[in-house]
Simulated scan of single mutants.
Amino acid sequence: MANFTTMSGFLLMGFSGKPEIEMLFAALFLVLVALVGNILIITTTSMDHSLSSPMYFFLKHLSFLDLCYISVMVPRSICNSFMHNGYISLWECILQCFAFTLCGCAEIALLTVMSYDRYVAICLPLCYEVIMDISTCVHGVLAVWTSGILGGVMHTAATFSIHFYGANIIHQFFCDVPQLLKLSCSNEYVGELGVSGFFSLVAFVCFISIGVTYMHIFSTVLRIPSAEGRARAFSTIFLPYLLIIVLTGI
C-alpha cells in the first residue's frame, strides 16, 4: 500500500475489498437514482408549461442538486474501482470536498425556501401569486446557491488549512471532512470544528423553521370545514411535494 506522507494526495479505501461489487452498486445507484429519477424530473418540469409554478421551479433545482451530489462522489468511485487504484490528488480532493459541502448547504437552504413556498400556497392562497412571483423565486434560488458557495468555501478552507500526517488514508469512498480531520496534526482541526458548529447551528435553525412551517400547514388544512377541501389540499398541494422529496432521495 502506498504511503503518501507528503501532501500530494490521499488513498480512498472505498466500501470493500472487492472492486467489482463497488463498481456494480455505484453504477446502479448512479443510473437508477440520478439519471432516471432526477433527470426525468428536470426534463418534465422544464418542458411541461403546466408545471411552471414556483413549487416545480424549486423542485427542478432540488433535482439538480441531487445530480450534483451523485456526480461528486459516484463517478470517481467507479473510476477508482475500475482502475483498482484509490489514489486521489490533493486538488481533486479539495474540489470534491468543496462541491460536496456546497451541495449540502445549498440543499438545506433550498428545503427551507420550498417549505415557505408551501406555507404561502396553503396558508395564504389569495396572496400566493403576489408573494411568490418570479422575482421572489429567482432571489430565493440565488440565496440558496450563495449560501452553498459560502459554506463550501468556509468548510474547504478550514479543512485544508491543517497539516496532515501518516499514510493519508481516507476510510471512505470520497474525501469526507470527518475522515480528513482524523489525519490532522494536534489541535489544528479546531478551526474546522468551529465552522462545522456554526453551520450545524444554521442547519438546526433551518430544520426548526421547516418543522414550524409544516405545523402551520397541517393546522390550516385541518381547519378547512369540508372533508373534500382537506383532501384536495393534501392531494394537490402537500402530499405530491413530500412524495417527490422522498423519491429524489432527500
Rank of each mutant, 00 (worst) to 15 (best):
G86V: 10
Q96K: 05
L181G: 06
L65C: 04
L90I: 10
L181F: 04
Y69E: 08
I244A: 00
V33G: 12
Q172N: 15
I244M: 01
H216D: 09
P225L: 06
S226G: 10
C105D: 05
I70L: 13
C127R: 11
P125Y: 09
G9L: 15
C105Y: 04
M23V: 13
L111E: 01
I39V: 09
T101D: 03
G17H: 15
Y214A: 01
I41S: 01
D117C: 10
T156V: 06
I70G: 10
R118L: 05
I88D: 13
T159R: 03
S186A: 12
L239G: 01
H163L: 05
I237Y: 07
E22S: 14
G9Q: 15
R76I: 07
V144A: 02
T136H: 12
S184Y: 07
S16E: 15
I108C: 02
Q179E: 15
M47Y: 09
M55A: 09
I170K: 11
N168F: 13
A143G: 02
I70R: 14
S77Q: 14
M1W: 11
S209P: 00
S77L: 14
Y214F: 15
G211Y: 00
Y116H: 03
R223P: 02
I217R: 01
G166F: 02
T220R: 05
L222M: 11
D66S: 06
F207Y: 02
I250W: 11
S135T: 14
I244Y: 00
Y189T: 07
F199R: 00
K60Q: 09
N168W: 05
C93V: 13
E22T: 15
H84P: 01
T248S: 11
N3C: 12
P125C: 05
S235V: 05
P225D: 10
F218V: 09
S161Y: 09
T43E: 04
L181Y: 07
V141P: 02
D133V: 06
K182Y: 13
N187W: 03
G197T: 00
C175K: 04
R76E: 07
L142H: 03
C79I: 14
L24N: 06
S135G: 09
T159K: 09
R223Q: 13
P75M: 13
W91D: 11
F234E: 02
L181M: 15
S53D: 11
R76W: 05
A34H: 13
L111I: 03
L90V: 07
S161W: 06
A121K: 05
S63Y: 06
M55T: 04
A157F: 10
M1T: 11
L126G: 05
P19C: 11
A106S: 12
G104D: 07
A99G: 09
G9K: 13
H61F: 08
L11I: 15
